[in-house]
Design a binder for these strands. Structure first.
Lengths: 348, 348
DNA sequence: TCCCGAAGTTCGATTTAAATG
DNA sequence: GCATTTAAATCGAACTTCGGG
């Protein structure tokens, strides 16, 4: 490898001068253009690349951000990751990707590894994260800018980016209601999942405002599970059971898209066509939603934006730290949008 | 931060001894257990963590692997990434994730960044990569173990992991044939995509062996596109056109799942029920395939295995380099499996 | 004082060579 | 010569200090 000393020797200047010139340090003002040119050209000729280990050792900076995903297989992750990546790229930061597999031990191990590598910030994608996995304490200790995506926090040392679940659910029922649906079945999220409560609240809030009656016998809860993909199975089973009760409903609002897919399968198997005989509504707008037929009407989370925003937040935090400013945690709640597609239509 | 010198001072030994003990270096044989114990306990007491920048500077190792994805939004990527992550985790390596967005300039920039960080190997996920983006040359120059996933190579400095496209396509038609289908429509991949040719070859090979006739009017090619998700639209349009010709077919074999989804949509819109009136077969088995209704019958690529295998290959390459062995590139071609689901059934 | 450049120190860990009894 | 320990050199860049014109 060619070092700064090689460039110094070849160009006839000292390594100090080379360093100043190549980094365009403040002192470079005083260095004559000829010198600069000579140094730059020999650097290029030798195709010199500074050793980042040495540089990082000195500067204590890694230009790296740790990204912790709680379950990579969750289709929610992919667009979020792209948003993060894109944002970091603009700032010449690189992400180190870790997948915690929803295991506490793995989380701890990875956190330690990332901190050892002096990542300058942490982005945690914790959408399908249960309250009982308490990781906030560990995260706070790290003292580097940290943001959680998909988990509401009032914490003032960890930032958060979430979708407005309440608003989303509100928009969802509103859509069904405006299509004339009055007998709506609801598949709520697992009780221990933090998204579940606000979404239900949004539904109740709309129901109250419009005098929509919610039949308790048309409400079911997904069981707790570590696996985001399990909600397909659960959605299928709960819908099957609900159909067996013979209690009529013209629309079904699922906790998320995965659940909605399960519900659609169950309805189809039972001979009820979607959307002709029953409308189905999801939440998230994962990739599969626009692909399947009928395309799923759903409440769209701006996942890529959320990733980009999270990256933006920690990047700002990094800059603040560099300038020794104290940056308070920021909490963003992004508005979802209804993506009206083919799985919903007027109640008949 | 607490350094090795702090541990040395506190424990009463020199930093040399501390280093030897904590790393369990060869010389540690000569160090009495008491000394070791004292050093280890003070290290723990001070919660000493070695500075990886310093260590890497000395050892020239980063314990990091660069992962370059050509398009993160391709649903193929997610399971592959999980396979990679899991394999690296076992070996205490960390992945740096980059998304090239199918842009040459971005590829070059990222490659440079990764090399600057002294990643010890490179894993390139190049499934939806067109031949005209020639990146092999750049990759070869890097001199570190490199593997490409999803692109066949005979190169002997870059390894490769691919699925057996020919076999997969063979299994696919075979499945349709065994269900009694004789009039099969084919949606082939874009000509410039490397996977297209072998898949078509597998189809022809089966057709020849069983005397299945392929009607050229039931064969269409996807147009070239940078975007893997575009094949949905293309699949939709091509199927629509094919239906308009009124040329009968009882089954449709798509280039990949995304294309198959487009085809299913077109069929449904045209009033042809899947699978009752037309069977549909995909290729890949992306997440959406088992979710939609009817669940898509498809040729399953072992994506997670492919990721894990790729990681295994470069890890072996890293070890070989350390021991100064010359490791030839390895080329693996994994067998796909038919995932028979609900979008195919007996020809009526 | 201003401009230009160099010598030497620092970052923190590893390793070589060597010094003790 | 052996067991035990360590001073000093090294990795490569960046910054502080200083000197000459």
């Amino acid at each position: 490898m060619v070092t700064i000393r090689d460039v110094a020797k070849q160009s006839g200047f000292s390594s100090t001068t080379v360093s100043i010139v190549l980094n365009n340090a403040p002192l470079a003002r005083y260095i004559p253009a000829v010198t600069k040119k000579r140094i730059e050209s020999t650097a290029k000729r030798l195709s010199y690349r500074p050793n980042l280990f040495a540089r990082s050792l000195r500067s204590r900076r890694s230009h790296t951000v740790g990204v912790m995903v709680f379950d990579m297989t969750d289709p929610f992750c992919t667009p979020v990751l792209r948003g993060i990546e894109n944002s970091l790229y603009q700032a010449s930061f690189l992400p180190i990707l870790t997948d915690v597999h929803n295991e506490r031990s793995r989380f701890e191990r990875y956190l330690e590894m990332l901190l050892d590598r002096r990542v300058e910030a942490l982005i945690v994608v914790a959408n399908w994260l249960f309250v009982n996995i308490d990781v906030l304490g560990d995260l706070e200790k790290s003292k580097i800018p940290t943001v959680m995506i998909g988990r509401e926090l009032k914490n003032n040392s960890i930032s958060s980016v979430i979708v407005d679940n309440e608003l989303g659910a509100y928009l969802g029922v509103e859509h069904l209601y405006s299509l004339g649906h009055r007998k709506i079945a609801f598949l709520r999220g697992p009780k221990t999942l933090t998204d579940s409560a606000p979404r239900w609240k949004g539904i109740r809030s709309f129901a109250k405002s419009q005098g929509l009656e919610i039949d308790a016998r048309l409400v079911a809860d997904l069981p707790e599970s570590r696996d985001p993909n399990s909600s397909f199975e659960s959605g299928y089973k709960l819908t099957e059971e609900m159909l067996r009760t013979r209690r009529p409903f013209t629309a079904l609002m699922a906790f998320d898209d995965m659940t909605a897919f399960g519900a659609m399968r169950a309805l189809t198997m039972a001979g009820r066509r979607v959307p002709e005989q029953c409308s189905v509504l999801g939440f998230d707008d994962i990739a599969a939603s626009s692909l399947c037929t009928p395309a799923l009407t759903t409440v769209r989370q701006p996942m890529e934006d959320m990733g980009a925003m999270a990256a933006g937040i920690v990047l700002a935090g990094i800059n603040a730290m560099r300038e020794k400013r104290r940056q308070p945690a920021t909490h963003r709640r992004l508005a979802p949008q209804l993506a009206a597609r083919d799985s919903t239509r007027e109640a008949s």
